[in-house]
Design a protein around this nucleic acid. Structure first.
Length: 587
RNA sequence: GGGCGCAUAGCUCAGCUGGCAGAGCAACUGGCUUUUAACCAGUAGGUCCCAGGUUCGAUCCCUGGUGCGCUCACCA
């Protein structure tokens, strides 16, 4: 409690004692803005009466702003001892938040420069600066060892009284978690640990919130996701996952660019939600007074670009789907979509295979990856299995054998009430049967190919069999990693399929035909194939993370502290077009 | 939305059958110049998630709520 008020002892104007009682370690001072996430740790009871109290803070303080004794705005995350040190720094003429950092050498390089006891590096005895977060303190009295982390790794610094005569009295101001810049001679300890023997120590930023326990880091998964910034610096291996994620993205970009692909950006706000089957998020544009949908897939825009002659395009598409959250679903997720003129779905499988194999080799040096305790070999070519064959094998009857399929659907306790109404309804049900019986067997890696045309409304029919679409889905670790097909480019056929979907009056079906897309096809889209890859899941596989949340820096979370949640159902009035869920390739 | 589970110090976690709230790390004080989660001695730190209920007495039992995890359904 005395946290914030330690400053009072150090000369902050007296007389705030009454506030002190009423406002223990809450968000104090600085402004009267809404409290926001006060307690970042636990829900707290409402504090409405305090607002007035806060405003009397803000009033008189500006004159003090900038002064060393101004009240310290802090949440209750700030620790009293650290706040006291902050004030002590100012009292001793040290700026806890200096304007500039230091020019430093990355830790990775310093390790190379230091070498080993057997083979000392060229930097031994030279002076360097390391900058980063202080990850601990091992105090031996006249010697302190401390690990410092920067983005490239961890290096030990050694603070010796004999080398730091002037600074030594300030040493107690240091805490784990502080941002520091340490300059000194590079050397090795008796145990051979590369160490900078400091001759200059600077606190570049005082950390007033204590870091998590040093050995375990943040273990509470909720805290890990909500406060990822802490997780990143405090938990082993977390940064590495996101570094690898960036490498994966970079590798794929390079690969596609080498293949002559152009990276493009298409709208995220869609007037008609299309390109996949999913409930969209909707929003409203005030000036246009219209409903817009966050994209569920970039597909229809990218194919417009093929019509436009760009021929090979890809996009990192953040897609938004108003669906459930699970260990492999997040409401916003990243999908790579690519389209290539003059290609068919076989070419898409080759690209997919080359990417997977190349990524595994680049990241792990082998095509075998571990995921959820199992090993998957991503060496190309990957096995293929035809949808109809899988259906026959695992369901036990032919896809088109209505009687048997219906019996199987009932056996699986699927909803069969719509099944008789239309051809589309039947195929939807048959596909449900497929997923129920076949998906559990698709551990992978395996390309499932040649899907029924009826569940692939944006795909082109096979030349050999008009009931079959030239389509692939790749499964690894039991997850669908991607979906691709030879693109339907017959505008009349596309319009017919769109209208069929709209007519189905399924709440998940599109409410509206995307006429502009049909018109684009009327101008002529060359034979084209497309592929969508779920990047988050790909990263899961390649970094052996069980949950999609572990490969997303900031996964979607419910807000804390009993904020109103999900009760805006009445927000879209009756006039707002009910979810223009779209036709899709079922991707 | 359904089922199961979890919520205790800044962090990681114990807490027996319902009887004064515990440890390690972090912090503070003291000691220690080559450690690697340093070590040794001491000090301080708690709305036991929230609200009700049962009870002489609730961290513990009951009811409801909140958040999170797993799982099922939908989806990629």
């Amino acid at each position: 409690m005395a946290a914030v008020w330690r400053s009072a002892e150090l000369g902050v104007r007296p007389g705030w004692g009454s506030i002190r009682r009423s406002s223990p370690r809450s968000l104090i001072g600085r402004s009267v803005a809404p409290p926001g996430p006060r307690s970042l740790l636990r829900p707290r009871p409402p504090r409405s009466p305090r607002r007035g109290t806060l405003s009397c803070w803000a009033g008189p303080s500006p004159s003090e702003a900038g002064g060393p004794t101004r009240p310290i705005p802090m949440t209750d995350l700030a620790h009293p001892d650290r706040l006291a040190k902050l004030e002590r720094m100012r009292a001793e003429g040290l700026e806890p938040y200096p304007a500039r950092g230091v020019v430093a050498t990355p830790v990775e390089q310093l390790h190379a420069l230091a070498g080993t006891p057997e083979e000392p590096g060229p930097g031994i005895g030279q002076t360097f600066t390391v900058a980063g977060r202080l990850m601990g303190l091992r105090d031996f009295g006249k010697l302190i060892f401390a690990p410092v982390d920067d983005r490239t790794g961890r290096l030990q610094v050694g603070l010796q009284k004999q080398r730091l005569a002037d600074w030594w009295p300030h040493r107690k101001l240091l805490d784990g978690g502080d941002q520091v810049g340490i300059t000194g001679e590079l050397g090795l300890t008796q145990k051979g640990e590369p160490t900078i023997w400091a001759t200059e120590v600077r606190i570049l930023t005082k950390s007033v919130a204590p870091p998590p326990e040093k050995w375990h880091g943040l273990a509470d998964v909720e805290q890990r996701y909500r406060r990822r910034y802490v997780d990143l610096f405090a938990s082993a291996g977390v940064r590495e996952v996101f570094v690898q994620r960036a490498r994966i993205a970079s590798f794929i970009r390079r690969y596609l660019e080498d293949q002559g692909y152009l990276e493009v950006e298409t709208p995220t706000l869609h007037p008609i939600s299309g390109g996949a089957t999913a409930r969209p998020f909707d929003t409203h544009h005030n000036a246009l007074d219209m409903t817009l949908y966050l994209r569920i897939a970039p597909e229809l825009y990218l194919k417009r670009l093929i019509v436009g002659g760009l021929e090979r395009v890809f996009e990192w598409s953040r897609n938004f789907r108003n669906e459930g959250i699970s260990v492999r679903h997040n409401p916003e997720f990243t999908m790579l979509e690519l389209y290539e003129a003059q290609a068919d779905y076989r070419r898409m499988m080759e690209i997919f295979e080359q990417l997977l194999e190349g990524l595994a080799l680049a990241l792990h040096g082998t095509t075998e990856v571990e995921f959820r305790g199992r090993t998957y070999d991503l060496k190309a070519p990957l096995p293929r299995a035809k949808y109809m064959d899988l259906f026959a094998e695992h369901v036990g009857c032919d896809f088109h054998d209505r009687e048997s399929v219906l019996a199987k659907a009932r056996e699986a306790k699927l909803d069969t009430s719509d099944a008789g109404h239309s051809a589309a309804d039947y195929y939807k049900l048959a596909n449900d049967v497929y997923e129920h019986f076949v998906d559990p067997h698709l551990d992978g890696p395996v390309f499932v190919i040649d899907y029924p045309i009826e569940i692939s409304p944006l795909a082109k029919a096979s030349a050999d069999d008009p009931t079959i679409a030239e389509r692939l889905e790749l499964f690894v670790g039991g997850m669908e990693l991607g979906n691709g097909f030879s693109e339907l480019n017959d505008p009349a056929e596309q319009q017919r399929r769109f209208e069929e979907q709209v007519a189905a009056k399924d709440p998940e079906s599109p409410a509206e035909v995307d006429i502009d897309y049909v018109q684009a096809l009327e101008y002529g889209m060359p034979p084209t194939a497309g592929l969508g890859i779920g990047i988050d899941r790909l990263v899961m596989i390649l970094t052996n993370q069980d949950s999609i949340r572990d490969v997303l820096l900031f996964p979607t979370m419910r807000p804390q502290q009993g904020q109103p949640s999900g009760d805006d159902a009445g927000a879209d009035g009756p006039g707002a077009s009910r979810s223009a869920v779209d036709v899709s390739a079922g991707s």
